[in-house]
Amino acid sequence: MDELPVALALLLVACAGTAAVATRDPVRQSLVLGVLGLALALLFTVLQAPDVALSQLAVGTALTPLMVLLSVRKVRRKARSERREEHE
């Protein structure tokens, strides 16, 4: 019974991880990735590793989504202008 939080956190990580892999669109994937980061932080906490959990929270909450979305924005803009160029 004492291991119930660990088991549940593992279950949450497994579900979020599978969902992150199964999502193909990078924008939606970054959302699932954010949730996966939170699940991992919970897992680290129930395994009594709060320092690691804090690192995960610090990096995964806002920094990773910001970098992913900025990259997506740049790539999409480039692709859009190249497509338009081909039409001309």
């Binding site: 920094l63 924005r73 202008s81």
Partner: peptide
């Protein structure tokens, strides 16, 4: 380091455009 890193990302995503690309 994080500020410098994000500054480059923001530069590329918002300000810098390749010639022929629309900003």
């Amino acid at each position: 380091a994080v500020v410098v890193l994000l500054a480059r990302f923001l530069d590329q995503a918002i300000e810098i455009v390749t010639s022929g690309e629309e900003g």
